[in-house]
Amino acid sequence: MKYYVVDAFSTERFAGNPAAVCLLEGEMSDAEMQSLAAEFSLSETAYLRLLADGRYSLRWFTPLIEVNLCGHATLAAAHVLWQQCAIASTALRFETRSGELAASFLADGIALEFPLVVTQPLAGDTQLRGVADNILATCRAGEDLLIELADVATVQSFIPDLAAVSALPARGLIVTAKTGGGGGNQVDFVSRFFAPAAGIDEDPVTGSAHCALAHYWSQKLGRETMRGRQLSTRGGEVGVAIAGDKVILSGQAVTVMGGEIF
């Protein structure tokens, strides 16, 4: 079985978020998929299998669990199909645990059509407010929780209590702040994402979190097209554009290595 490691939401190697993409040639059990994901020890390992109708089955595993939605590994999977497998179609469709997802080939990258996650304000959530000081707002963000902090520097310097984050009733914690950007190529908001209960202390660039960040900041900034930057050590940028109940995530990717799994 062939595999590739791709740095997603980046234009250069060793930045963005790395994902392993495995091209399934036959049956593979869930336990085997999970064990291989633990062997790769990346935030996500994606498994692709061509279906009879031309779509692709796509599943995502962290080193500990299978997840319902993953943006950077979907971007990586689409990148592999176009760049390494030379798929001719400029549109791809994936069958996933979150329903059908779509990817489009662009001149300057890849666009993913994902479900928009509507954020809901939380009032008086003392457990969440105990995670950080000087929180401006707290929200439920689908499977995750979201807190807004004062500014970019506060997000950058945030040191999570991973035990407290792991105990939250959520997949992970999104920490975010606005930048004061004015649109265009500027960054409108920043974020970081922590999911220690899923085996990811801090995720480098989280596409699925931007499904909620798109909704949250569109309400705050009054725009449906924005750009976010994730302030992890590796860093990366994600374009977001709301289209009804969908969000279009856009970015680039770079293949770093490939090989064969025996």
Rank of each mutant, 00 (worst) to 15 (best):
A195E: 08
T126A: 15
A141L: 01
V187T: 14
G180W: 02
S157D: 14
Q127F: 14
G183M: 09
G222E: 03
C139I: 03
S166I: 08
A107H: 12
A198R: 03
D203Y: 01
G207V: 14
A107W: 10
E148D: 11
I174G: 00
T119R: 04
A164D: 01
S208D: 03
S218W: 09
I110K: 00
E113R: 15
A198D: 10
G182R: 13
G130I: 05
P169Q: 06
G109Y: 08
D151R: 13
G222L: 05
Q156R: 15
H210R: 05
I159Y: 05
G99P: 05
G199R: 12
L116S: 08
A209H: 02
R140Q: 13
A123E: 15
G235N: 09
L231K: 03
D201G: 11
R227H: 11
F105Q: 15
F105E: 15
E224V: 14
P121H: 07
L231N: 06
A137I: 03
A107C: 01
R227A: 11
G228F: 05
T119M: 03
E100K: 06
Q230E: 06
A111M: 12
S208E: 02
A197H: 14
V187C: 12
V118I: 12
F158T: 08
T206Y: 00
G130V: 07
A103G: 09
G142C: 04
I135T: 11
I200P: 02
T179Q: 07
T154G: 01
P204K: 00
I110A: 00
G99V: 07
T126V: 13
L106V: 06
R140F: 00
L101D: 04
G236M: 09
T138Y: 01
S166E: 14
A212H: 08
Q186K: 02
G124T: 07
S191P: 08
L101F: 08
A197Q: 15
G109C: 08
E143W: 00
L136N: 12
D125W: 12
G109F: 13
Q230H: 08
V190G: 00
G228D: 04
D133V: 10
A167E: 14
R227G: 07
R140K: 14
F194A: 08
L221N: 06
N185K: 13
R129V: 02
A153M: 03
A103L: 07
S104C: 11
G172I: 03
G124F: 08
A107M: 07
G199D: 13
T126P: 09
A111W: 09
D108G: 01
L112R: 05
L136P: 13
A170Y: 00
L213M: 06
G222V: 10
T138K: 05
Y216K: 11
L136R: 15
G130N: 12
G142H: 06
G99F: 05
P160I: 07
G199C: 11
P196C: 09
D203M: 08
D188C: 04
R192A: 02
D161C: 06
V175S: 00
D201Y: 01
Q120T: 15
G228Y: 06
E143F: 02
D144V: 02
P169D: 10
G172E: 02
L101M: 08
G222N: 03
L145H: 00
L106Q: 13
F114L: 15
Q127H: 15
Y216A: 07
